[in-house]
């Protein structure tokens, strides 16, 4: 079957089907972009009570927060899926939101809800981000950077610690004054409305830095889908790349969680929808698709909540409800195969 290769055996020719597929991915991404623009326009300009300028200013902030959160959640979840080789996980398995709950609860527990509300949001945000990032960096360097290098061990420890933090928070919550508890539980529902401007800018900056690190690694991420042994065989410095990506994921997730609350479940939905929608395994397509889908889900959900159902802030309910159903679908479909 093998023959001596003729020097110029086959001229590279454009492969029609592959380029059609690629064009398909571009068209699909563009269509999604169009939908995002339409949603943004609908959110900004419809149903304006009174001054348009005032509404635009307020709503512009919500749109900005939506985009930042969608970018953080979309990028981090797709990257997390690739480095763990598992598509039904979210970075929350590392105990991110559990840590968020713990820190918030601890503040209220120790200083009371008045102090929690009076605290400088910037300080609170910075502490949350620092603690979450610190936690994940310690976890990943200890379990992955060292001799063992096991992603699964790291995930397992993350789950155990996450459960511990969650239980510990619950234990503290039991002993809280009902009023304090009310204030606290309000903070646990993700809300995109009325974001603090300074925090939004800071979060956006962190997420932008994260994206700047991920973009040059998109092709390397493609190779990582082949699994660690093959990726190493193809010259990927697996340990360094994965630790870098873990750091990026934790910074992005920490920053966005500290801004709006826990929304990681959203990542599971948008990432898996993105794999189906993008029509390609290449991260150059799946990552932006996941981000745009994130905007569609968040802003679409916000539109329905605010304009159709007439609720204020809490998006978590919708995200968790829809996400839970979608997760069940994913698991059942996997089982059926």
């Amino acid at each position: 079957m093998l023959t001596e290769p003729a020097p110029v055996a086959v001229r590279p020719r454009p492969r029609l089907r592959a380029s059609v597929r690629r064009a398909g991915s571009a068209v699909r991404l563009a269509a999604l972009g169009g939908l995002v623009l339409a949603l943004v326009a609908a959110y900004l300009f419809t149903d304006v009570p009174g001054s348009l300028a005032y509404a635009l200013e307020k709503r512009g902030l919500t749109v900005a927060a939506t985009v930042v959160v969608a970018a953080a959640v979309g990028v981090s979840t797709v990257v997390f899926h690739t480095i763990t080789g598992n598509r039904v996980l979210t970075p929350s398995i590392m105990g991110f939101d559990a840590f968020y709950l713990l820190v918030s609860t601890a503040v209220v527990f120790a200083a009371g809800s008045a102090a929690f509300l009076a605290a400088d949001p910037l300080v609170l945000w910075a502490v949350q981000v620092a603690v979450m990032v610190g936690f994940s960096v310690v976890l990943s360097t200890w379990l992955f950077g060292g001799k063992r290098r096991s992603i699964h061990l790291m995930l397992l420890v993350g789950i155990v610690l996450g459960t511990f933090f969650r239980s510990f928070s619950e234990w503290m919550q039991r002993m809280l004054d009902p009023l304090d508890f009310q204030v606290l539980s309000d903070a646990f529902f993700a809300s995109l409305t009325r974001p603090d401007e300074t925090l939004l800018v800071l979060t956006a900056a962190l997420v932008a830095v994260g994206c700047a690190v991920v973009v040059p690694l998109l092709r390397t991420l493609d190779v990582l889908t082949l699994g660690e042994p093959v990726a190493v065989g193809l010259g990927v410095d697996h340990r360094r790349v994965v630790l870098t990506l873990f750091a990026v994921v934790s910074v992005m997730v920490a920053a966005s969680t500290a801004l709006v609350g826990p929304v990681l479940f959203l990542g599971l939905i948008v990432a898996n929808l993105a794999y189906a929608w993008a029509g390609s395994f290449r991260h150059a397509w799946t990552v932006p698709t996941a981000v745009l889908l994130g905007v569609v889900c968040l802003l679409g959900g916000q539109l329905v909540l605010e304009r159709v159902l007439g609720f204020g802030g809490t998006l978590s309910t919708v995200v968790d409800f829809a996400g839970g159903l979608f997760f069940l679908y994913l698991v059942l479909r996997k089982g059926a195969r």
Binding site: A18, N86, R87, T225, L226, G227, F281
Partner: peptide, 8 residues
């Protein structure tokens, strides 16, 4: 080597 993504 199991690959989660669909490759050609």
């Amino acid at each position: 080597n199991h690959v989660a993504a669909r490759l050609t």
